[in-house]
Design a protein around this nucleic acid. Structure first.
Lengths: 163, 163
DNA sequence: GGTTCCGTACTCGGATAGTTGTTGTCCGAGTAATGAGGG
DNA sequence: CCCTCATTACTCGGACAACAACTATCCGAGTACGGAACC
């Protein structure tokens, strides 16, 4: 079990969009070329981000994608939920304790939520909280801090396409 | 994206095994009947638990599964890892920042681990920590506390099979 | 020369196949109880 | 009556299909630019 690859692509793409925020919209083709990804499939993931309101899309020449809001307000959880499409519930309780022979056991028939499901959900909340506590802006800060002198020139190379 | 159903089955089965700890080993057929699950597929999951050393298996008549160690030493993380078979890494970094046009950007070529992967892994550690902090014994405590008076009689019904 | 209009090229968007992983099932190897036979 | 041993039934264990989800791809709808024609 693991997250789809699209999550990684979406996060990196949002990072690039934040990086080139003052430039024109970036089409999927260029986003794909930057990370050497399948163009059409990345486009599909970008559609999911657009539906979730994380990025805005523009059609036609000079069109492409831009961040819909400041990078500091785009959390990792937003991107994960957008691309996984709500299927990001790590655990789902199917109420198996209410079926079969266990149905005759009073301790298992209480209306209280299943203790196992509760524990799993508690862990999941920890995961989602950590994702929500991190934004795209945190990552751009990391990268800018690592090599501030080359920021502008590399942004230009990325915007042009090939290095 | 979500965990396999086998995780829920494994957790509930461990709970039953802990509940009936002083009884004879429980065969997969009875475990499946308790929760009305597909017998053969549950057996497959129990095999995974046995390989991980969480339960011990006995063949032949009067055989079945028993917890290999006290329920207080069986964490949810143990069960999840055992059944997901090590594929429980929620996120895997495929190093896409080192390919394509991004390969020419100095900021993306540092040897430091990918900031995005780091953030995702940090969230995953939170999840795994929460899972490790919960044991099967915690759940048995919850259930016993809810209806202490009926514990013994229901344990007997479960051991016999049908209520 | 300025304005309008049309053609063109480029972009997103949803509908369409291929491949991997999960779910479900089956039969064989091994083992302990069981009953018969012999001492 | 007790012991030995073959039979038998029951269990786990790994090998074998069916399904779903993820991955990958294509073509159509819409839009802005660019140029030509007209005023």
């Amino acid at each position: 079990m693991r997250l789809g690859e699209g999550v990684e692509w979406g996060l990196h793409s949002c990072l690039v969009l934040a990086w080139l925020d003052d430039e024109a919209p970036i089409p999927s083709a260029r986003l794909a070329a930057i990370h050497e990804l399948p163009v059409a499939y990345l486009a599909k993931q970008m559609q999911a981000l657009a539906r979730a309101g994380i990025v805005t899309s523009t059609s036609g020449p000079r069109g492409g994608f831009k961040l819909a809001r400041p990078a500091s307000e785009v959390t990792f959880l937003d991107v994960v939920d957008a691309i996984e499409g709500g299927r990001a519930s790590l655990f789902e309780c199917t109420k198996i304790r209410t079926r079969g022979a266990a149905a005759g056991v009073p301790e298992f028939q209480t209306d209280a939520p299943c203790s196992i499901a509760t524990a799993m959900h508690r862990a999941e909340v920890e995961w989602r909280s950590a994702l929500q506590a991190t934004t795209i802006a945190d990552i751009t800060r990391d990268i800018s801090g690592a090599a501030p002198g080359f920021a502008k020139v590399s942004r230009v190379s990325l915007a042009k396409g090939e290095p």
